[in-house]
Every structure is written in structure tokens, then in C-alpha cells.
Amino acid sequence: MKKIKTPIAKKDIFNLRVGDEVLLSGTIYTARDQVHKKLVEAIKKGKKVPLAIKDQIIYYCGPSATPKGKVIGSCGPTTSSRMDELTEPLLKKGLLAMIGKGRRSKKVKNLIKKYKAIYFLAPSGCGALLAEKVMFKKLVGFKELGSEAIYRLEVKDFPLIVGIDSKGRSIY
């Protein structure tokens, strides 16, 4: 089990191998389907986006509403492959890591290798367990999308497995 903290240096990414178990602490941003569509459209048009993508970690997640007295509701990963066709523009902008569940396309595997990024898996269908690892949640952009908006999450010992490493090797 490796403990890593954000910001993550590129060299730390190179040291992670497919299948490695990681406890991540620090800042991650939620972004899923509609946010990806909007980000990619904005990047194409050269418009400003509400998220500094370079060296950041995106978590494919749309959390449940926050119950009273809690930091966040249930917050497990959603299916990553739906973002496959919308991933390259973000990697081009320097996106460091993605967190989700399930397989990625061959194209994304190659892109991860090309841009020396990394893809983590979070335990799927375990949103209650993961909610306990989130210390702070703040809305960052696209409020109108509700749970699909961008949220900044501060996580502590968020349990992950390397799904695709920076050399493009996949766990599946």
C-alpha cells in the first residue's frame, strides 16, 4: 500500500505500476458526462473553463446529496468509458490522473501512455465507504448540473488501485 499526497509529481506517477494499491490524500475534482462535454466544447472554442486542468486529478463521480451533519453523501465512481471520447483534450491540457470504474478504450490507454498520465480505480458501488474519506466538499462550477457539477473534494486515504499506469498497462 503506497500513500501519496497531492500535488503529485510526474516522477511519482512513473513509479506507480498497474495493480498497485494507493491511499490518496489531497485535492481531487469531480467531473462526469455533461461537465466533460462542456469542458471539451469550451477548450475547442478557446474559452475559459472553471477548472485549472493542468496537473489535476479528475474523479468521475456524481455524489448523492449531502445529509445533515455530513461532509458529503455517498460518492463512489461512475463508469469511466463514457468519458473515453472526451478525454484527449483534457490530457492535452495537462490532466494528470483520472479516477473511475471499469475499462477504458484502446485509444485512451494509448493516450495515457502518450501523455504519461494515470488511471485509478476506486472501489465500485462502495459510495458510503468512500464518503467517509472525504473531509471537505466545495462547488467549483456548473452549478446548474446539480450532482453532475464540478466539486472540489479534499480526501484522506482515499483507497485506489492503479487501473492503467503511465506505460499504458491495464489491470483488465
Binding site: G62, S74, G76, G125, G127, A128
Partner: peptide, 8 residues
């Protein structure tokens, strides 16, 4: 904790 089993 009365948390949803899954966020979906």
C-alpha cells in the same frame, strides 16, 4: 450512517 449504499 444512513448513507446511500451507492451514490447512484
Amino acid at each position: 450512517e444512513n448513507l446511500a449504499i451507492c451514490q447512484d
